[in-house]
Amino acid sequence: MVGRDRFDILTFSCLLGCVLILGLLLLGGQESKSSVAAIDKALEQQIAYQARVNFLQNLYRPVEDLRLKGQASAALLKLDELARKYPQEAHGEILRGEILLERDAVKQAIDHFVRAVRLNGDYVDQANPLTRRNEIQHLVDTQLPLFTRRARSNPQSQPLQKTLTGLYYLQSRLAGGCE
């Protein structure tokens, strides 16, 4: 066995160095590929969400138009029609809650806000384009003391308890999670 001379050692070191550099380059390439993929996915999600927001705004525009004209009853009937086609759509529940609140049907309005937030938490997210956080906060702030008093003076009433439970639910969703 011939002993390794300096040239051999140098050659072997260069080879090892090349392999290492190649490996690092390959790894770096994969990382940048995955980060590009991540950016693509986030973008896709954002585009899909924006499309959903636009779709909802277009879908419920006739309802909003009727509301602006002060035609609450016609707006509610339009919502009934849309609910047959999109029964689990939270946006319809939100709009229904808002209109019923304007019509002084407070208990029913609370039921619909609860249903909407259960279906889609975006409505209590301040940063969301669909947010109704301020409206829901105002609803809780004004109605919770009233319904608490009414429920205390009439502890047997199940409908009052149901409404109060709904208000507590909205309150806890506004407060956010426990982390």
Partner: peptide, 26 residues
């Protein structure tokens, strides 16, 4: 208003068939 709601719900009339000129307090 309840009859309108029920009739629309059952598909017997459509919301767009009528102008609702006014609605009373509840």
């Amino acid at each position: 208003s309840l009859d309108l709601e029920l009739m629309v719900g059952e598909g017997r009339i459509q919301a767009d068939d009528f102008n609702i000129i006014a609605e009373s307090p509840i």
